[in-house]
């Protein structure tokens, strides 16, 4: 099992309060996201839709690389990995 860090945007404060980063564990990125949602269950509705797809205007980067399939992701997780969620530059 590897340890990684998930970073969250400030806009998600209504869901998680002042939490900006969460330490997660797993052997794949999908397992890491599962751990994130166990620790912060209110995030699920904001990051993923009913079909468990990343919301269209939410971005996820795994070590700087965009990954839209994180919930089911089988990419291996390594110690020190960084998973970043951001809102897309859109809206008004």
């Amino acid at each position: 099992m590897a340890r990684a860090v998930v970073r969250l945007p400030r806009l998600l404060e209504p869901a998680v309060g002042t939490v900006r980063q969460v330490e997660v564990t797993g052997s794949t990125i999908g397992e890491a996201i599962g751990d994130l949602l166990r620790q912060q269950p209110t995030l699920r509705v904001h990051l993923f839709d009913e079909q468990n797809q990343l919301r269209p205007h939410v971005l996820c980067f795994h070590n700087g690389t965009p990954d839209r399939d994180v919930a089911q992701g089988t990419a291996p997780l390594s110690d020190g990995d960084e998973i970043v969620f951001l809102q897309a530059v859109s809206g008004g």
């Binding site: 806009l11 079909q51 919301r55 939410v58």
Partner: peptide, 28 residues
């Protein structure tokens, strides 16, 4: 939210709010 979907929040004073974990959600 244009980015993060919809949610239900509860408060006893209109100032401090908590999101409910099991809000409305359509079956997959």
């Amino acid at each position: 939210s244009n980015w993060f979907g919809a949610s239900v929040h509860r408060s006893t004073d209109y100032r401090n709010w908590q999101q409910v974990e099991n809000g409305p959600r359509y079956p997959e």
